[in-house]
Amino acid sequence: MVGASKKVARMLQRLNPDGWHYGGLPGLQWEAENAREGDRALMGRIVDELREDVRFEEFYHACINCGNCTSMCPPFRLVDFEPRIVVQKVMHAKDEPELLYQMMDQYIWACFQCYSCWEVCPAHNNPGGLVAMLKEIAVRHGLQSARKTLEPYSKILYKVMTTGTQITPDMHTSMALFKDWGPHKAELSKNIRTERAAVPVETMAGVMDKSWRVDDSTMKELMEIEEEAGVLDAVGGSLKDVADMVREAAKEME
């Protein structure tokens, strides 16, 4: 590992002082430093975990760098975040684990798993899914970045952990069937505008409920999975209240 090859050293040097990567496109200095100070063994483990995940086979094929995913990506309109770069870095993760690690600091947290990218990808990659896997890994290893980024999101995280994504069917404009929604998409989105208008803004609670009707049994199962997979323990370190909330919610349902 000390040798880490001259190529890597040179590449890290390139990241400094302006932190550019990928053909000189602007990257970020603090993350480069994050990667340099990071534990190399951990970086390798992260790559292995990512590749061994059962979803990896389905979510990742190969990236031809076409930019279709990015063209539909909502955060890309505001933030310099690109699903294309995510897949590129996953593609090169074995040779350049530090680039993947570097990305896990702030970059991936711009994604909110709308999976628009998945729908349009000509190679059928799932960048959003890969980001989700990376986020899980970040949480599992209790990376500082994950803690820092997730802190303000405790409540939302709770929501995601218990009921899934935040996207409502009508937020999705594409004609194609949104895989995650199942056959009830049309039924769910029929009255959602009226239903939402009736909800008092202050509470916001109603909106969330309307977004996705999750069966009690499904929710329980979800929580069990979180518990069994050790996600709650991993989160517990930094987001204790969230973990407690999930556990309480699970108990209430019993």
């Binding site: 970020l28 933030v79 310099d80 975040f81 702030q106 970059y107 947290w109 711009a110 980024t149 303000p152």
Partner: peptide, 12 residues
């Protein structure tokens, strides 16, 4: 408050 603050240009 923006989580991915560093990826947003100051002027925007």
């Amino acid at each position: 408050f923006i989580a991915e603050r560093r990826y947003v240009d100051d002027q925007r």
